[in-house]
Simulated scan of single mutants.
Amino acid sequence: MTEITVFIVEDDPMVLDVNKSFLEKIGGFRLIGEAMDGHSAYSQIKLLEPKLVLLDMYLPDLSGLELLIKLRFERIPIDVIMITAARDAKTIQEIKRLGAVDYLVKPFRFDRFQKALLDYRKNRKNIVGLESMKQEDIDAWIGSIEGGAELPKGLNEITMKQVLTGLVELEHSVTAEQLALQVGMARVTVRKYLDFLANIAKVEIELKYGNVGRPTKYYSLL
């Protein structure tokens, strides 16, 4: 498996150096950029397209949460590990809903940092590079989703697995209507699950334009 590219967002130079030194000790990861403010981070992340972003919550211009929301809104396909001193339950819950794969509370030791990255690499390996997925592959991937983002009210694990299985079986980008026919569900139900997966950067949305009317959304696994 190729190295996982990493981008670090941290406004404290000392903490930034610590995070970089921690990262260097773990094989399989490569730092490709860093930023000390949200706007610079945003532009560089779009340009460099890292696989993983280590994101601090408190930045001088906008919060890490605001940056994460912006990245998710634009469907930028990255995974995020939050690094922050914030401990309040509301903030942590919001970050989980936005699909952060882990949450490191400052100050943390190397062993916890290492666990976060190794767990991420293991979960990523469950899906990246597979031409098709067995049920156990999907179950493992679902576990990584549930570990990073709580399913919203109205969504459940069983239906999520059916939607993912349908995406794998079709092996190409599909509309919500096409996938609904594949899995035997209502189109509106399937769309809810697809949009959730897109919001946490597990599914990519492509807009295809016809001769008239609105563009059609096509969904595919990242």
Rank of each mutant, 00 (worst) to 15 (best):
T2L: 12
F7E: 02
I8A: 14
V9Y: 03
V9S: 04
D12P: 05
P13I: 06
M14E: 10
M14T: 14
V15G: 11
L16C: 15
L16T: 12
L16F: 13
D17Q: 14
V18P: 08
S21D: 12
F22A: 07
L23H: 06
I26Y: 15
R30S: 15
L31Y: 06
I32T: 14
G33L: 15
G33A: 10
A35Q: 06
M36K: 11
M36E: 09
G38E: 03
H39P: 11
S40K: 08
S40W: 13
A41G: 15
S43N: 11
Q44I: 13
I45P: 04
I45Q: 07
L48P: 15
E49V: 09
K51D: 10
V53G: 02
L55G: 01
D56P: 03
Y58G: 12
L59N: 05
D61M: 07
S63K: 10
G64A: 09
L65C: 08
L65H: 13
L65P: 12
L65M: 09
R72L: 03
F73S: 12
E74G: 13
I76S: 04
I78M: 01
I81S: 02
M82Q: 00
M82G: 01
I83R: 01
T84G: 03
A85L: 04
D88C: 00
K90Y: 10
K90M: 10
T91F: 03
Q93K: 07
E94S: 10
I95Y: 04
K96L: 05
K96Q: 05
K96V: 02
L98Q: 01
G99I: 00
G99C: 00
A100Q: 02
V101L: 05
Y103K: 03
Y103E: 03
L104N: 00
L104M: 02
V105L: 01
P107D: 00
D111T: 08
F113P: 00
L118I: 09
L118G: 06
Y120E: 03
K122V: 07
K122A: 07
R124K: 13
R124G: 06
N126G: 15
V128P: 04
V128I: 15
L130V: 15
M133G: 05
M133R: 04
Q135N: 13
E136Q: 04
E136T: 09
E136A: 06
I138F: 02
I138V: 02
D139S: 12
A140D: 03
A140Q: 04
I142L: 10
I145V: 07
I145Y: 02
I145W: 01
I145G: 01
E146G: 14
G148F: 03
K153N: 04
K153W: 11
G154V: 12
G154C: 15
N156E: 13
E157K: 08
E157C: 13
T159N: 08
M160E: 05
K161Q: 12
Q162N: 10
L164C: 06
T165R: 06
G166S: 04
L167G: 01
V168E: 02
E169L: 07
E171K: 09
H172M: 09
T175S: 01
E177W: 13
Q178A: 11
A180S: 09
A186F: 15
V188H: 14
V190S: 02
Y193Q: 06
Y193M: 10
L194A: 11
D195L: 07
F196P: 08
F196Q: 14
A198S: 09
N199F: 14
N199D: 15
A201V: 14
K202Q: 07
I205T: 13
E206T: 10
E206Q: 11
E206Y: 15
G210D: 13
G210M: 11
G210T: 08
G213W: 00
K217M: 07
